[in-house]
Amino acid sequence: MMSVSFDAVIRLLGSLGRFALTSLDRMGDATTLSLSSLALLFRRPWQGQHIVLQLYALGVGSFIIIAITGAFTGMVLALQGYYTLAKFGSESLLGAGVALSIIRELGPVLGALMLIGRAGSSITAEIGIMRVTEQVDALEMMAINPRARVLLPRIIATTIALPILVTMFDIIGLASGYVIGVELLGVNGGAYIGEMISKVMLQDLYAGWVKAVGFGFIIGVICTYMGYRAEPTTEGVAAATTKAVVAASVGVLIMNYVLTSFFL
């Protein structure tokens, strides 16, 4: 009995160690891959046109979903915040509460998660399919560096697009929070705006934007990496897409904690 459970523990520790090692290995691989791609940014040929195309597909294409998420987040925050603050008779703080939660936390995090769902998964699937159908090799044969042509523009595009999308999320969220708080729940409009303006500091805005840039970057890195290193089969691409969404979401949440502790 004793030896069996001891064996099980050893085996568990072994698989844990193996998991940690492969994770580290993959992180290192992802870092080298994305850094070697990014190093090509200032190398000729200039990939500006492809960055623009990816900004269109990933950034502009995600605008609607971000707008909807932002609107409903602002609305529910106003409702919940009002419910809680009314207990203390501090409804006037509603504007500040809604604005700070959106700008510091929910804008960047929810924006990032929506971008992963809308654009991240499609990045992985697209690159994975390019691998399966040998399009990556075809580019290589036509003397086009796939890292510069396929990976780089997508990483740059998510890094640029997310702060912009988060800004739109913030503005739409604040506006819809105002509509619910002031028009529907009857909080004094002047107090709502006044508290919002006096409580939100420039550093809160910076914190939100820095987060957005960081999240956009790791979304680009993780999703391109998963697609590029996907096993070149149909199942491999499907598995890679799932893995990319999970890894990118977890990555965003961990990075969110690190950055938040940094900015407080």
């Binding site: 800004t167 739109m168 503005i171």
Partner: peptide, 27 residues
């Protein structure tokens, strides 16, 4: 056309950031 839309998208983002910084951040 795509270039113009992307240009608008980026411009809107920058205006939004500037507006928020001026209105809320008291720059």
């Amino acid at each position: 056309k795509i270039e113009i839309v992307v240009g608008l998208f980026v411009l809107l983002g920058i205006i939004g950031m500037g507006w928020m910084a001026a209105k809320l951040g008291q720059v």
